[in-house]
Design a protein around this nucleic acid. Structure first.
Lengths: 348, 348
DNA sequence: TTGAAAGCGGTACCAT
DNA sequence: ATGGTACCGCTTTCAA
């Protein structure tokens, strides 16, 4: 009952249509539109075909192509929660280089939920993605079995696993912590506390370990409670943790936190204790999320190159996909302390 | 030269393998694994097949399925810039309901670049996406021709077009502006300025129009310069614009901005003019981006339900895809003023 | 250089 | 309820 229309919407022209219009064989049309390098095609014929394709508005069907070639130029990207301010630049960077290399980005926000992650992973695998970029990995949790024996190349973004060596793009947390600590020590602080983010990410774990190691290296003799891990990532978590520490007679004169939100919570705890930041207590955050330069006082924090990290993660994957022989390597970027006004010389 | 392996990585089992293992015909296996509603399948047989599929770790090939069915359960989402704080919740909301309905989200960040947008669009179209969600639309720019005669359903997210009626999920900007204005008027302000975001988005345009209409309605007699549009979206844009206004003898006692960054820039202009916010000049932002509650003073701003907007945009599209007869409708959500401390009674 | 034809992994129609 | 089979749109080997 449907009327046959020439050009308009309804039925997309196929390669067959193009070949017909150009007066050549289907196979010839295919070759003309693909890599002219590998397949010999008469330039005149090729021009004819391309012309016909343009006139018909031919768009090659990637689905058909993928089925035939067994290559799906698509990469799945799994994000735990886009609301986390570190994620957008990560995704942006990754998508940028993926697109640059002709890959389509399949995106999913798992909301930190295991079931959601499994479902999205199944979708991606069903699409026969060429690779996966995971920002959802947890230290102690090995890659899903269906993932490992799917044989799909995986790159971890901003995360690592404890046991399994999987290629990853991460930052050197110890550098960030060291810079923050040395800054504070340089200001005369000796009683420095660390309020960490939860340990189920490699970043959280490494920051805590780095804090312990470096304070020891620098000869700081800290009570064990000065290095602690909070239950969550929020202002309230930071506030509660610092409040307890400030109640001690040997209260810290400076505090370093695992993220910026917790640092801002520390502002509240300091104020609640009748103290001031930075005069009485210095605060250093982590991540340099947007607007931390506008809070009161502007937050000294560790800036992490998340956009680059996203680019690197994607590059790693693309590289592995191109070269068959590329040793699966990882990359590690360096953060940098951004000194603003939440840190000051230790009170005398 | 490759060894044939039973289960391990290398070659994925196909439906044929499953059928063989289950001792049934390929077609039967297909039916057993698909909707048992439409096709009659013996429960015992179905169980056998599913068992075999599970044992082999069979994952249906979505590519093959799409080629055959001409249905690609994937939706392309085009974002102008994930760095814009309104975008993450939008994308998160959209992906969530898309996944809920079995759609894979193809994601692209166009970096506000026309060429990038064209390239990504071509990719998506080549994948034969079932639909598109665009957060990149510009008021004055009609949908790309290749898009319109591709016949792919489109939903605009947080944006609209001037001329073409395209289904969209947006917010009622006039409500947001009205609430902000009435709040200020209620505080006794009469000289209220508006510093808008650029006009190439429908939101930017509607906010400006709403400001003009509502101030007229409320009987405010404002100099035309009191309603103006800035070149960009940054703190500096807001600062510069307000600085000029504050130099006037009839300077505004309150300012409403098109986004939060510009509002924060206004803080700077006010301070630079030797005035205080909110004592001398009240400021109202727009969007309620993260941390606006922590700046000094905490910003009064219009909170926009971006997460819901993303969900609605996706719902609209899914709906249109399911029902063939769904009138292509749009949805309009309502923002709400969040009163914090950057607004105070007008100075006497 | 081009034509012919097989077939990727499924689905769905037809017959049994 | 199940088996047989054409075919979706394209790439690629093989012949001509």
């Amino acid at each position: 009952m449907s009327t046959e229309m020439a050009d308009p919407a309804g039925a997309k022209p196929t390669l067959r249509d193009v070949a017909l219009a150009a007066g050549v064989h289907l196979a010839t049309a295919s070759r003309a539109l693909s890599d002219s390098k590998t397949r010999p095609v008469n330039p005149r014929t090729a021009a004819l075909v391309r012309q016909a394709a343009a006139k018909l508005g031919y768009v090659p069907d990637q689905v058909a192509r993928s089925l035939r070639t067994h290559r799906t130029p698509a990469i799945g990207v799994l994000i735990p929660d886009m609301t986390n301010p570190v994620m957008p630049p990560l995704v942006r960077g990754a998508e940028q280089v993926l697109a640059q290399h002709g890959y389509t980005t399949l995106f999913a926000d798992t909301d930190n939920d295991q079931a959601a992650e499994t479902q999205r992973l199944a979708m991606f695998l069903s699409w026969r993605v060429a690779g996966l970029i995971l920002a959802t990995a947890r230290r102690d949790q090995p890659l899903a079995p269906e993932l490992v024996n799917s044989g799909v190349p995986v790159v971890l973004m901003s995360r690592k696993l404890d046991a399994t060596p999987v290629p990853s793009a991460t930052i050197d947390e110890s550098v960030g912590i060291a810079q923050a600590l040395d800054h504070l020590i340089g200001l005369g602080h000796r009683r420095i506390a660390y309020l960490g983010v939860p340990l189920w990410t490699s970043a959280g774990h490494e920051r805590l370990v780095a804090f312990r190691e470096i304070t020891r290296d620098r000869g700081l003799d800290l009570p064990p409670e000065f290095a602690q891990v909070c239950d969550g990532y929020s202002e309230r978590d930071g506030e509660a943790a610092l409040a307890a520490l400030l109640a001690r007679p040997d209260r810290p004169t400076a505090v370093l936190t695992g993220n910026d939100m917790m640092a801002l919570g520390c502002y509240d705890a300091i104020r609640a204790a009748g103290l001031r930041c930075p005069a009485d207590v210095s605060v250093v955050g982590y991540n340099d999320m947007p607007l931390t330069h506008r809070v009161d006082p502007p937050l000294t924090t560790v800036r992490v190159p998340y956009f680059d990290l996203g680019r690197q993660a994607a590059s790693l994957l693309v590289e592995a996909l191109d070269d068959r022989g590329s040793t699966e390597r990882s990359v590690r970027l360096t953060p940098r302390l951004l000194v603003r006004d939440s840190t000051a010389p230790a009170p005398t």
